[in-house]
Amino acid sequence: MKTYYNPEDLKKFGTIGELQKSMADKFFAYYSEVFAEGALTAREKSLIALAVAHALQCPYCIDAYTTDTLEKGCDEEQMMEAVHVAAAIRGGASLVHSTQMMSKIKEISM
């Protein structure tokens, strides 16, 4: 069955340089620096990535960072809490706009 997303494509991520090498090289160098141990631990960064993956609903990223967080020693509870952080921000981002709606209601109502 043909689908838009194929899990095998994730393994080909590194080949994007075939069409634009210098930008891809810069991106991957940047990417690996971002995820290295720094002021945040690699484990904390992996949990952030897992949450962002869910916010963006990127299936490749969800596969990659589910595995990566497990390999960084995170447990299911921590991983699900990270996803709730993403969900809370997404939900909050919608709800906070309701203040604009409320202002507009006031503006055009008697």
């Binding site: 631990t41 484990r43 595995t67 497990l70 390999e71 960084k72 020693g73």
Partner: peptide, 17 residues
């Protein structure tokens, strides 16, 4: 040892946890 098809985390970090 990992409870599935993935590699173990860093030994020091996991030991602390």
């Amino acid at each position: 040892n990992p409870s599935g098809a993935f590699l173990p985390a860093s030994q020091t970090g996991l030991e602390n946890e």
